[in-house]
Design a protein around this nucleic acid. Structure first.
Length: 582
DNA sequence: CAGCAGGGGGCGG
DNA sequence: CGCCCCCTGCTGA
């Protein structure tokens, strides 16, 4: 999900420089050129946040508005470089700080996580143009993968995704990564040994060491196998994914999460061959698409002989689309159209025939398409599926109309069309979706609606200030007066106001600009997501709703995380009593 | 607007 | 581990 968020917010490109503005390090000129208008004093931009999130957890405090200085500047100033330079590079590339879990470039002051520093060094300080244009006959090369992307789009009018594999399979970058990983392992081991020999009397460090020790003892089997790249400086979660910011206390969830970083999907639908990385997703898919067929849990797991063993994700995982990756072997012929083929008992096809040793599903290779898609295996199959769908049982029926949906969530979302829970504070307009209310408010009342509470701002600046003060979301594209010098409360704050916490001191935002504004919006979405993900968000809680009354649906607005599907929960639960689930 | 896939967490065996 | 629910984004009608 994070990779999707990052991809959507910031594009496919992941090869930008380090950009860890947390420590206020000036970006090297080459990197600034790659992403102009970014300034280090912005501390953390959407772009920087995305970079951080792709490589591991940011240091504590980075996700907050204020950036408190670290408590132990001595430990955090210790940077250790490798004894031997990397041979072909004639450089030690970077030094490592186990306290900060960050690397510092050997040739400049750039600081960041391993992958970022490796990419940064390769692109900025290496003479080698490691990334080459994949098109035959073209000699273009760049130190940055994004350079090849730009070249492909600009000079060849080609899909930049064709260069995606360069990110992952570049030997030079791999070598750099391994080199820095070895350094990290060595330094971290030495630091840990030193900590064990001389326990820090300081309370803060004692706590940290105990925490690290506990983590080492408990998460070694999983997360350390994944490279232990990120560590858990936040101290909140026992299992921390090395490939993304995910962290959890549950080992089973972590194990399940690890699957999303693997290419192989160990489960598949034995009717349409669509592959999944979770068994329950297969079941959900099955009950939606093949509801009239018997579901057999024992047949969804692809056998070991079929599934090519996939190693645990490396410490650094690049979120590049596999679409451009050439398949390792010519894929087996697409499975026969499943609908007419399977016998009544739906015998699983023999493993050698299925031969699922194919490249991971890519958009360019949609062979086992779901039956509902236009690209269904055959018209007959699609027709059969359609018939099945018409005949198929529908379990969730609307109490207002004849509609019925495939699951409870569809019902909840559908109910919004009747209830229109998003009511305009300034007129009688009601909308089924939050974004429509926002559009209405903007066009009709010329206000900016907060997506997290009923607040209506007079302009973007006021909205940004509100986001910062009430939701701790920094809109970096706008200059917001720092401190408590708030603008007067907007008159449009008509409805029940969201409780506005005391404003926290935050860094003043940089200058305005469309790109940065877009990034700020992306950052806001990302922050919002983070808040929603950990359940600690300060989302607006709608007041208690009146008992369900079908004749007069309550108009109280509800501002949920899912703005589109915002049927009030209590309300929805009540609705279940009035809607049929059969 | 709805169907679907793919994330996350809770819960029980 | 399996199941369930919730949430989110994408996509097509």
């Amino acid at each position: 999900m994070f990779k999707e968020i990052t991809k959507k917010l910031y594009g496919e490109e992941t090869s930008v420089g380090v950009g860890v503005g947390v420590v206020g390090v000036e970006f090297p000129a080459a990197e600034r050129d790659l992403d102009d208008e970014l300034r280090p004093e912005e501390h953390i931009t959407a772009w920087g946040l995305a970079a951080l999130m792709q490589n591991g957890f940011p240091p504590p405090g980075i996700l907050q508005a204020n950036f408190a200085p670290r408590l132990d500047p001595d430990a955090e100033d210790r940077w250790t470089a490798a004894e031997e330079p990397l041979a072909w590079a004639h450089s030690r590339i970077a030094s490592y700080n186990p306290a900060q879990r960050l690397f510092k470039c050997a040739d400049c002051e750039c600081v960041g996580f391993l992958a970022r520093v490796a990419e940064h060094w390769l692109g900025t300080h290496s003479q080698a143009r490691a990334f080459q244009c994949p098109l035959a006959g073209c000699g273009f090369a760049s130190g940055w993968a994004r350079g090849v992307r730009s070249h492909l789009a600009r000079d060849h009018h080609s899909d930049p995704a064709a260069a995606d594999h360069l990110l992952r399979d570049n030997p030079a970058l791999d070598d750099l990564t391994r080199y820095l990983q070895r350094l990290k392992n060595k330094v971290a081991a030495a630091a840990h040994a030193a900590a064990e020999r001389a326990p820090e009397p300081d309370d803060f460090h004692s706590a940290c060491c105990q925490q690290v020790d506990a983590m080492r003892a408990e998460r070694r089997p999983s997360s350390e196998a994944a490279g232990d790249a990120a560590g858990a400086p936040d101290g909140a979660k026992r299992y921390v994914c090395a490939a993304c910011p995910y962290a959890t206390d549950r080992r089973d969830l972590f194990t399940r999460h690890e699957n999303i970083h693997r290419d192989e999907k160990p489960f598949h639908c034995y009717l349409c061959q669509k592959q999944f990385n979770r068994a329950d997703h297969v079941k959900k898919h099955f009950l939606r698409m093949h509801r009239d067929q018997p579901y057999d849990l024992n047949r969804i797991r692809r056998s070991a002989s079929i599934v090519k063993p996939s190693p645990a994700p490396p410490a650094l995982h690049y979120y590049s689309k596999p679409a451009g990756e050439p398949p390792p072997a010519p894929p087996a012929p697409a499975p026969a159209p499943p609908a007419p083929a399977p016998p009544p008992e739906y015998r699983a096809p023999p493993a050698p025939v299925v031969k699922l040793e194919r490249a991971p599903l890519a958009k360019s290779e949609p062979a086992p398409a779901p039956l509902h898609k236009a690209a269904a295996p055959s018209p007959a199959a699609a027709a059969a599926a359609a018939i099945r769908r018409k005949v198929g049982e529908r379990r969730y029926a609307c109490c207002y109309c004849a509609w019925s949906g495939v699951d409870n969530w569809c019902l909840k979302r559908h109910l919004n069309t009747h209830l229109k829970p998003f009511a305009c504070a300034l007129c009688e307009y009601k909308a089924a979706r939050a974004e429509r209310l926002a559009t209405h408010v903007h066009k009709v009342h010329n206000k900016k609606a907060c997506a997290k509470c009923p607040f209506l701002a007079d302009d973007q600046l006021q909205l940004a200030q509100h986001l910062r003060d009430a939701h701790h979301i920094e809109s970096r594209g706008l200059k917001v007066p720092a401190g408590g010098a708030r603008a007067p409360a907007p008159a449009a704050f008509a409805q029940a106001a969201a409780p506005a916490p005391a404003p926290e001191p935050g860094p003043a935002a940089g200058g305005a600009g469309r790109r940065r504004e877009a990034r700020a919006a992306g950052a806001a979405r990302l922050f919002g997501y983070l808040e929603a993900s950990d359940g600690s968000g300060d989302e607006y809680e709608a007041p208690a709703l009146a008992p369900f009354a079908p004749a007069a649906p309550p108009a109280a607005p509800h501002y949920a995380r899912d703005k589109e599907n915002a049927a009030p929960l209590s309300h929805a639960h009540a609705l279940h009593d009035h809607c049929l689930r059969y």
